[in-house]
Design a protein around this nucleic acid. Structure first.
Lengths: 128, 128
DNA sequence: CTAGAGGTTTGAGTGCACTCTAGGTCAAGA
DNA sequence: TCTTGACCTAGAGTGCACTCAAACCTCTAG
């Protein structure tokens, strides 16, 4: 698969794909006879997983650590497990915080709703 | 209340407080005779609310819109309400996405856990 | 055979949200 | 009186995660 295809299938731009390779998030892609990158399906799965880490707020630094361990092979299984467990804790805390904020937001919104319906009543009364 | 006190009570640095004022997120604080900012409790409440917007991922641009409406006074009640309702939708979607990612993460983690316990069994068998 | 689409590299530029620096003023305590 | 510390302004610098530019190469269709 060429980089343009991967762009369409992964949702990353070619710019970002090359950038990820440059910094080590993606392994150096094998090149064809004319020097063009040639990807297989596993890259797509890896990018998808990186997307999950990114979506849950993991900084690139940390993804890099995970990527390094992944390149080290099987012996890093425990460390990768630990890193993900650690990250999961962070994500859970983040969700909890968002939900708390959502509650505040709800309160604020219903406050506005009350104020608005009151001012509607006033207008209604005035127009009678 | 002086800016140093507000720093302690709000959790923002004085740098950030002045920056927020510069860009219009905080109203120009009244100054005392020597030109120092003098805050009251309402500023603290406002900063706290800004914190909720920030924590839920609202960009400063949007907070600025809300801040402008707030300065316009009561007539902006409806717009402020609408903005918050809009934002709430965004936040809910964000939480849903995080939870979906969390599920993926859980799957990955239990996969690692399985692999690790298998390799433990192998080591155990080898050491027997 | 030539235009155009898509690939390559290195390095510079962008947008966001701060964060810090330099150079100054001012009030209170030793 | 002198020093210390908290405050002031304008503007420069930082870190993150891209994003784009310039100059070049290579395959394919008309």
């Amino acid at each position: 698969m060429k980089i343009g295809t991967l762009e369409k299938r992964s949702g990353l731009t070619t710019h970002t794909i090359r950038y990820y390779e440059r910094i080590g998030l993606l392994p150096m892609a094998p090149r064809d006879q004319s020097g063009h990158r040639d990807y297989d399906e596993t890259t797509l799965a890896w990018i998808e997983f990186l997307g999950h880490l990114k979506a849950t707020g993991m900084p690139i630094k940390d993804m890099l650590v995970y990527a390094q361990m992944r390149m080290q092979g099987d012996e890093s299984g425990q460390s990768r497990h630990d890193l993900l467990v650690q990250h999961r804790t962070t994500v859970r805390a983040h969700i909890a915080k968002l939900q708390a904020c959502l509650t505040v937001l709800d309160g604020k919104i219903s406050n506005y709703a009350k104020t608005i319906s009151k001012s509607e009543m006033k207008h209604h009364a005035a127009s009678n």
